[in-house]
Amino acid sequence: MMFNKRTSPYVTGKQDVSVIMRQVLYALVPGTLVLIWYFGWGMISNLLLAIVFAELLEWGMLTLRQRPVRPFLSDYSAVVTAWLLAVAMPAFAPWWLIALAMVFAVVIAKHLYGGLGYNPFNPAMIGYAAMLVSYPVQMTIWPAPLDFSFAHIGLGQAVQQVFAGGSQSWDALTAATPLDAVKVNLGLHKTLNEIYANGQFGLLAGQAWQWVSMGWLLGGLWLLWQRIISWHIPVALLGSLALMAGIFWMINPQVYASPLFHLFSGAAMLGAFFIATDPVSASTTPLGKLYYAGGIGAFTYIIRTWGGYPDAVAFSVIMLNMAVPLIDYYTQPRVYGTKRQQG
């Protein structure tokens, strides 16, 4: 009897890129549900638009690049990118803003660098950063989450807001995010106690935003438990952010916000579990992951506290993405039978 030849190993595990990506999507659900709870259609429209644009662009780029469409479209990587961008952008974001963000993310950051696996930068963060720099006003007007008026905005008004530019009275309904509020008011020489007194703040951080962060944390812990991500990046990122915040908070708690405030504000949790952990653009050695994520946490604190932007996860991730090849080179594990690690 004759057989076909193959090379070993003949058995493989059950892991698959699409399985991993799907699990990341499941883990995004709790935080996303909290966002929908506060912003209603505003967040649903973000998600739907982002996913539709991302898949269309992915399909277009794969076709242009003459790559097999089906295996790549079914790997869910574009959906993950779209989802991350959708939850990072203000609710009720206009359609063109989302479309443009997806062009930067999928076309420029991903496919022009060679597609899945070859992008040196995190696509979602490139899309986000490009929009933040280009359209700072649209990217920072978050609807005020607390009075729940946005959760009850009807579908019709939501569509009008997203596609037709919205009503004149919209500005009155927006509010600064907690990080923004702290930054602006500190600039006005108020103390943190005065700032916290305005009712927008809860036990940990912003009253609405702390729950969103809790949602990301929950999903992130599930990812850890499922072993989709390792502990290194979340722990190092949150750890270094908390450490930096803790040092300055102890020096002057009226000027520097507490570590807890930093951990549960802005994109710290989302970044620690979902963005910095993007395997393609992150460091891959165990030690390297610690340096990489520690750097992101530190830069996030520096920019939040002394920089020009209220939040800084996107910029910090992009900066450390640049350092990844160097970090990986100098943090190679000691190979069996060799004396010392290289570098």
Binding site: P279, V280, V335
Partner: peptide, 20 residues
């Protein structure tokens, strides 16, 4: 069918010689 490497690092975790 093989997809591109996404640098997830599972291979490095499983390598008994601590290679990358």
């Amino acid at each position: 069918t093989a997809l591109p490497c996404i640098r997830c690092g599972r291979c490095a975790e499983s390598c008994p010689a601590s290679l990358l």
